[in-house]
Design a protein around this nucleic acid. Sequence first.
DNA 1: AATGAATGAGCATTCATTCAT
DNA 2: CATGAATGAATGCTCATTCAT
Lengths: 216, 216, 216, 216
Amino acid sequence: MNAVNHCMSASPTGSSNGDLRRTILDTARHLLVQKGYQNLSMRKIAREIDYSATSIYLYFDNKDALLHALIHEGMMKLYADLDATAHQYSDAPVRRLEALCNAFIEFGLANPEYYEIMFQLRPERMKRYPAEKYRQARQNLEFFSAALTQGADAGVFEVEDPRVSTSTIWASLHGTVSLLLAERVDVRIERETFIDTAVRQTIRSYTPSGQPAPSG
Amino acid sequence: MNAVNHCMSASPTGSSNGDLRRTILDTARHLLVQKGYQNLSMRKIAREIDYSATSIYLYFDNKDALLHALIHEGMMKLYADLDATAHQYSDAPVRRLEALCNAFIEFGLANPEYYEIMFQLRPERMKRYPAEKYRQARQNLEFFSAALTQGADAGVFEVEDPRVSTSTIWASLHGTVSLLLAERVDVRIERETFIDTAVRQTIRSYTPSGQPAPSG
Amino acid sequence: MNAVNHCMSASPTGSSNGDLRRTILDTARHLLVQKGYQNLSMRKIAREIDYSATSIYLYFDNKDALLHALIHEGMMKLYADLDATAHQYSDAPVRRLEALCNAFIEFGLANPEYYEIMFQLRPERMKRYPAEKYRQARQNLEFFSAALTQGADAGVFEVEDPRVSTSTIWASLHGTVSLLLAERVDVRIERETFIDTAVRQTIRSYTPSGQPAPSG
Amino acid sequence: MNAVNHCMSASPTGSSNGDLRRTILDTARHLLVQKGYQNLSMRKIAREIDYSATSIYLYFDNKDALLHALIHEGMMKLYADLDATAHQYSDAPVRRLEALCNAFIEFGLANPEYYEIMFQLRPERMKRYPAEKYRQARQNLEFFSAALTQGADAGVFEVEDPRVSTSTIWASLHGTVSLLLAERVDVRIERETFIDTAVRQTIRSYTPSGQPAPSG
DNA sequence: AATGAATGAGCATTCATTCAT
DNA sequence: CATGAATGAATGCTCATTCAT
């Protein structure tokens, strides 16, 4: 929406030009994870980067636009992570699904700020993330859907409705990440154990004999 | 809505104002449910009950204390719901677990704002919910734990570590509720189908043969 | 809208209570005439009276409510002025109309701040002054209407449609006041001459022979 | 609306940008008419013409200077309107005065925002509109003055002091336009009726027998 | 037990303007 | 001739909280 965007959109020239935009985004992310969405304000970002609040508006039309940009980045990053994972195990659906689950959880734990605005914000609390972007968001689920379908075709998964199953898998992963981020999991349980169990059981619920994932 | 009303006090309780604390909590809950956590302010509560904002501070040290009390109430309510459910199927662990899952989800969907402050608020962003309360909160998980253990003893569940499994079940349920509340589930999927599938798969992942819950 | 209003509405107890409300109104009026409507801000009022901006909101729901209160006061004052005038010449319609015209102009010149918000504000620039108050505002025109009608009955005025004529008389007076307040009148013309001529011609336009007002 | 457009410059003028000053004024006028004086900002003008806000300052010292130029243009336009009218009825003073009155009112209603900055802005609230321009502004009144004097010479008008009378006529017209623009006229009165009556009575007040304008 | 009065800090956003280039 | 970057001041308004009574 401003000249910078228009003229140099994705150019990584490194000049002082797009840098501030980048800095704003990064700072917003950091504040987001530290203080939460409710406490993220244009002023706080400005104070943090030692610029006037007005300056932020040179790079983002308004607070929502800034958030949307952040969401977009998060979606892209998650997509990249999942895509890399899916390519690694392209011919082993069970192992692939397992890897995708782990990748999703890792993404959430490694990028709590992205995760919060991507998946934990109630829609009524923010001007709706533009519809076109939603489509892109849903692409991320396609990786799971594909693994599930392929596994079903190969007889290693029992799946009634792939669409529904994709969503319930997502629910499990989302719950796992959310509880961990909110520090709600029993502290006596090791994080890794919890994650491994969550993933294993999630996959197990789609394998015919209920046996552990047969590694491919 | 203010002093005038106060004088003609048409409040349904009609009792003396010794239980103003009670009224505050009830009103806070109502506002929470109707307007959301973000819109819950001391002022609004006060306006609603026709008392001065100052009065609230006679009963609660600050907003956080009020919120803690609310969370406590939510925990109690959830406990009551789960307790009632557990009693109904005290001798059928699978069916009981299934019912508990459904009860949990129903609670979340029926009390979205309660659910938010109980499970979705990050502790680091609120003056820490006192540790003792957390213990009480964990009681709610005991219902699931018990069903799981009992089922394992009866051979209808395969459970390695009940503590961990309880948490992963909880993760699934939490994810299910969260996605629904955030309106993130594919709109083409019927809500009931989604919930039923989520619960069924969750339980299925703990049954030896992977077959659907054998009704007891 | 707040306790002060409700409990002591018009009581002139002189305690420190309603005083601030009064001070706010007076200060707003002064700022209004000095800086104009566009430059009237809650903060400026607050700064002027050495109170926090927040305090103003204890006495007025918002800026509009403050303006409305001011308009209301102006309407009341104008009504009082016109009423007093009308009573003085209750049986001499021409002289009465003349006196009413002068009273209106004098009111405008003596209370430019009231005049501006009462008559010069474009409706789209302020949330509409509540309808009930408009009725009261129109009452002020009734004095002119009555004089005109009575004069027509007595044969000293030629009036086709009293309603329309009342409005055109008002237009003349409003134009006279507005030009004077905006300091747009040729400086070589004495203010009194201008006013007298304006009033005389206005009345003359309704007298049958075009002769000057026959003093009764 | 920004740099991109700028490059493809689909501006209707197509001429070189030597007359950017002209474009700025035109755009400012459009915005003034469409959005009102309050919404006229340097930024918005700049955005509209696809130039940087800074560029405007190359042609106008500040916002006031721009506004002055706009007022000047308005005065010129009004002058042109009145001039054309005066020429049409150069030998019929009554009809001419009537036409001038109508032309003035029409100008005000057709150019409400022009009218606002020309006649409704209080000088003390804007860096003083330069004195020399005021003189030019007064030229517009000369048309009325001339008609009045000529009519007086011809015996169709009774005028004591043409200067004063010109001003009171102006007051009537200004009041008429102002009330209409402020939407303060009784809605039950047709606009045309109101205007016709206002003009008729205004002229009537200068005709000896008080009879309606004798068409010449 | 309850309140009225008051406030400082905070919010998103807009504005006219400057200055180095 | 034209701009991009930047800003300080301003806006209406809400909030949790305090304190004397």
